[in-house]
Amino acid sequence: MYPHERSLVERLKDEPFALIGVNSDVDVEKLKGALKQENISWRSFWDGPKGTYGPIATSWGVNSWPTIYVLDETGTIRYVSARGPQLDEAVDTLLAELRAKQSGGK
């Protein structure tokens, strides 16, 4: 999964785009080694010491990892569980929509 996330972040670094994580690791200090090794540069909420049953994951009904939501610029949920090429397609569609809206508004 990381290589795909990295390439997404890299490809869209100049676009109005953000990859935000919600991390369910129990030990955040241990995780920091992995961040460096895997070159994980995106920002994540840490869901606390309860790991996979942390408050954010529980209130979002997350039962399997990774779970992915794609939100548009208004914070509206537009895609749930998009993976692989579908995820790229989803993000590209929303970026195109956003560009069309912005140029239409001018």
């Binding site: 109005p16 785009f17 919600v22 779970t67 794609v70």
Partner: peptide, 15 residues
């Protein structure tokens, strides 16, 4: 909500 105005991929993950 700090990221309003951007397209956001919200990724629940663990290492």
């Amino acid at each position: 909500s700090d990221y309003r105005g951007k397209i956001v991929v919200l990724d629940f993950w663990g290492h």
